[in-house]
């Protein structure tokens, strides 16, 4: 245990333990599987919102294609995290695969904000330990919550709303960091169309496809607009 690094990850500990427990409780309340499946998911998937969505996908017995698409698009923001760490992880050897695997929102924010020396190998070793500590907190949270949910009986009707609440919170965070409402309206509208036009099994995928098409059109429109402006000025 590296005391200085442990202190650095304390805020993540306080975030991951309760969120992991919330997932664990949700898992045992909604599903009939053994409680230890919850920490196994924390070990292999290691994604907060992803695992909470997973509970509702398992409850609905979603098909594997829908599972892949839903998990992929929910975590699509991670596609852009790696881009800022390409150089930092270069030459990390056997540690690199785990560093990439463990790149959650929280790990990303720690790794990109901490001060670094020029000693790259030493810094990569620290990155590795930070990621490892974070995942340990997450798995312990998942196990605690699932074990509690399994052994303390309570009426859990309606607990699945945690998923809706989580998505509302994440949407507000997106709005605050973007400062633009349009992408949120695009997503909401795409979902509305999918809900009205498609059977329940295809609504999620349909809405994602619609929203992506809308963003591509928006990109083309902006590019043409910029080209026009340049033509007028030049």
């Amino acid at each position: 245990m590296n005391a200085a690094l442990f202190r650095k990850t304390l805020p993540i500990l306080f975030g991951y333990l309760p969120l992991g427990m919330a997932f664990g409780v949700l898992f045992t309340a909604q599903l009939d599987y053994a409680w230890w499946i919850a920490p196994v998911m924390g070990l292999t998937i290691f994604a907060g919102a992803g695992q909470i969505l997973a509970v509702s996908l398992i409850a609905a017995k979603a098909g594997m294609l829908e599972v892949f698409v839903a998990m992929f698009v929910l975590n699509a923001r991670h596609l852009f995290y790696g881009l800022s760490l390409l150089g930092q992880f270069r030459g990390a050897g056997w540690r690199k695969a785990y560093l990439i695997f463990g790149l959650t929102d929280e790990t990303y924010s720690l790794l990109t904000s901490r001060t670094r020396t020029g000693e790259r190998r030493e810094e990569q070793r620290k990155d590795f330990l930070i990621t490892l500590y974070n995942q340990a907190y997450w798995v312990i949270g998942c196990a605690l919550g699932a074990w509690l949910g399994d052994n303390v009986s309570f009426d859990s009707t309606g607990i699945e709303f945690a998923l809706v609440a989580l998505f509302i919170v994440l949407a507000i965070e997106q709005l605050k960091s973007l400062g633009e409402q349009l992408p949120l309206w695009i997503g909401a509208l795409a979902a509305g169309v999918a809900l009205l036009a498609l059977p329940p099994d295809n609504q999620l995928i349909g809405a994602v496809v619609l929203a992506t098409i809308a963003l591509l059109l928006q990109y083309l429109k902006r590019r043409n607009h910029d080209a026009l402006q340049e033509g007028q000025h030049g």
Binding site: F167, Q174, A191, G192, V208
Partner: peptide
């Protein structure tokens, strides 16, 4: 690539909003 940057910037927000609507409708 500007297309990648555009989608990367806006897709996460659009996905969150669509998840809110789909799961809110179901609950």
């Amino acid at each position: 690539h500007p297309l990648l940057l555009h989608v990367g910037r806006y897709l996460p927000a659009a996905v969150m909003a669509l998840l809110v609507v789909v799961f809110l409708a179901r609950s």
